[in-house]
Design a protein around this nucleic acid. Structure first.
Lengths: 132, 132
DNA sequence: CAGGATCCCGGAAGATACTG
DNA sequence: CAGTATCTTCCGGGATCCTG
């Protein structure tokens, strides 16, 4: 088991993490997991996304080889997006993350509640000290 | 297999994805994977992080119950950070992502090169059209 | 040593308008 | 329909200074 990793690959890991960590990429990937979809389909399915961000997200996914964009030269224009084999394969680690969150959802929220509770108490103490 | 998911849990998935997708969290988690570390250890180990961002990152991880913060009331103060069991368990899906990137690193970069090549060619065409 | 408090800047992202 | 262009707003994050 190697202790050192290729720095370039590590950087690519960071890049992909921030990609799937951004606001829309995962949602788009999951939508496309059901099969090909047109631009407006995605726009409607991914609630809250602006057409600008949908375009940018799709372009980035296409650039990384995760999504294939097919233009049908009809009028009005018809553009279909679908996951490539690479994009499909990415769904596995993503769903692993999703599964982890679903499994630990309650622990996470309990921890947050506990943390916030302690923090509030601490600030109340500070107030008393300053007032005293 | 359910077709609908708890919206609250889906939101938590997004939250955790943007957490591990941020610039520093994963690096900190991986550093702590080797065992407990002090603030300055992490500051030195995670090259490039400012003490402000290290603090914010650690606080966020602590709030989600991934990291435990222990203060030793000595002088000078000594604070140790370590992964909780929950934090340890998160390393699995993270490494799944990392493994995927390592396995597909070449495909990704090939796709990017291809995409950029096509884009450049396209823009060159546009130029010719406008000049003509 | 381990942070808290401020200031500040660049880039991410939303809103809007226009187009092939 | 499927975008592009532009403007503006917002916030992540770095730099710096201060403190128990």
């Amino acid at each position: 088991m190697p202790k050192h990793y290729d720095p370039e690959k590590c950087q690519t890991v960071s890049e992909m993490l921030s990609r799937i960590g951004d606001k829309w990429s995962v949602l788009v990937i999951m939508m496309l997991g059901d099969g090909p979809a047109r631009f407006s389909d995605l726009k409607r399915a991914v609630v809250g996304i602006s057409q600008r961000m949908l375009t940018l997200t799709l372009r980035a996914l296409e650039r990384d080889g995760l999504v294939r964009r097919t233009v049908y030269p009809t009028v009005p224009p018809r553009v279909e997006y679908e996951l490539t084999a690479l994009g499909q394969s990415l769904r596995e680690p993503i769903q692993a993350m999703g599964g982890w969150v679903f499994a630990n959802h309650d622990k996470i929220h309990a921890a947050r509640a506990e943390f916030d509770r302690r923090n509030d108490a601490e600030r109340a103490d500070q107030k008393i000290i300053k007032l005293g």
